[in-house]
């Protein structure tokens, strides 16, 4: 742990205040390259806040978020605008409540994700407006990439349907592969298994393991579904009331008394009640 050579994301002393509320308090963790890191904790623990800080949707009150590319480049994410984090630092994310482009087709969703390379290929629309050949080739490559991911997720037959018409589980998968179409080095998934049945969860596990193995993309995920967390995570970080309470391998976490207490309550009834009372 903490070895910079192999860590891809290092969050240091992250603190986030919303007015008087401290959502995340002096939180530090590192995600290692090529691993699946899970961020777990009860509802309201501050997991999504951490994600929003990492992906630039919030500016952290205090703290440093470093991203190390395999080629040695380093990005300080807390200083980058949200869209630049995806564009330059190559961090992609999904959302807890799926955010697709429901009125556009599945294929269009995946091609929109390749906006930045395609913009360059279209000469910022000027070359594309006059139908230059180089743009046609770039568009074909973009469609091929989309086809590859659709094939992976079994959505190829639905490519020309509107994304809003897909079943819930299919929308989840589409959002993940749409994020993959931005060629990320780090993929942040906010509750990818929420609302999925056991079969769909198993498919999701396979997809995530495939992404990690074949594309070398490191994954950080927030998840409540322990079957997903325990099966695919290499490393788990537990957050409660904005504080880190545990950090380790799945087996460490499973037996950690503090984690069990956070999830199931303390054995002592009095403390449990006071704990429950304090929870907003």
């Amino acid at each position: 742990m903490g070895d910079n050579a192999e860590s891809i994301l290092a969050v240091e002393h992250l603190t986030m205040h919303f007015g008087g509320l401290v959502a995340v308090d002096n939180f530090s963790f590192a995600a290692r390259r090529g691993e699946v890191t899970a961020l777990i904790g009860p509802n309201g623990a501050g997991k999504t806040t951490v994600f929003n800080c990492v992906t630039g949707f919030y500016k952290p009150t205090v703290g440093m978020i470093r991203l190390l590319h395999p080629d040695g480049r380093e990005f300080l994410l807390e200083r980058l605008l949200d869209f630049r984090i995806t564009k330059l630092a190559r961090v992609a994310r999904t959302f807890q409540n799926i955010r697709l482009f429901p009125g556009m087709t599945v294929l269009e969703n995946l091609v929109v994700a390749q906006h930045n390379p395609l913009m360059v290929a279209s000469g910022f629309s000027i070359a594309g407006l006059f139908g230059l050949k180089s743009y046609a080739q770039a568009e074909k490559a973009a469609i091929d990439k989309a086809r590859y991911w659709l094939d992976r997720t079994g959505l190829l037959a639905r490519a020309d349907d509107n994304a809003g018409q897909l079943a819930y589980g299919e929308q989840r998968r589409l959002e993940i592969v749409r994020a993959m179409c931005t060629d990320p080095v780090l993929l942040c998934l906010d509750e990818p298994a929420a609302g999925l049945n056991a079969n769909e969860s198993a498919d999701l596990n396979k997809l995530l393991l495939f992404i990690r193995a074949e594309h070398g993309t490191s994954i950080v995920l927030i998840e409540h579904d322990m079957s997903v967390v325990m099966e695919i995570s290499d490393h788990i970080v537990v957050l409660d009331y904005g504080l880190k309470i545990a950090d380790g391998t799945p087996s460490d976490i499973r037996n950690d008394p503090k984690v069990i207490a956070a999830y199931l309550g303390h054995e002592d009834d009095a403390t449990e009640l006071s704990g429950a009372g304090a929870r907003p």
Partner: peptide
């Protein structure tokens, strides 16, 4: 369709 999703995909 969704401005936040656009930003998450690196669109300015």
């Amino acid at each position: 369709e969704d401005e936040i999703a656009c930003r998450a995909l690196g669109i300015n």
